[in-house]
Amino acid sequence: MKILSNGKKAIVLKTGHDIRVYSEVCPHLGADMSEATYCAKAGTLQCRWHGYVFSAKDGTHLDNPNERMMQELREPSAHYRPDRAPRYRLPVVPHTVRGDRLYFTRAEAPQATETIIAVARDEAV
């Protein structure tokens, strides 16, 4: 995890030569994903607030354990439409590698329903 000069955080995952960088904001309800549980074996990040599981490889949402735990309560209703659930994805932070340094470029706000953070321009880890 890297704290940038603007106070925002980015999550940097390095596997061999492969580097993935994600925004700290969970696309579900905004949890700090730098506090997520990383499972190297499964290649996943699990959000600390609601347990949503994301792929560490591409940020896609893989699992919501609550769907099993609370199956009896998840009947569709007037204001609960599970069929409309978005395809959550951890926002990827654009970056470039130059030599042994990683540079971030300010990201455009992802298509989220709420606001999102941006990361600092051209800041090296």
């Binding site: 609370m70 309560l73 609960y80 439409r81 069929d83 409309r84 659930a85 329903t113 606001t115 953070i117």
Partner: peptide, 18 residues
């Protein structure tokens, strides 16, 4: 992140809550 009193995330159709 979203402003004081902002519950839009909870009000969304797809969001589960009791």
């Amino acid at each position: 992140l979203f402003g004081r009193g902002n519950i839009r995330g909870y009000l969304a159709d797809h969001q589960f809550m009791l």
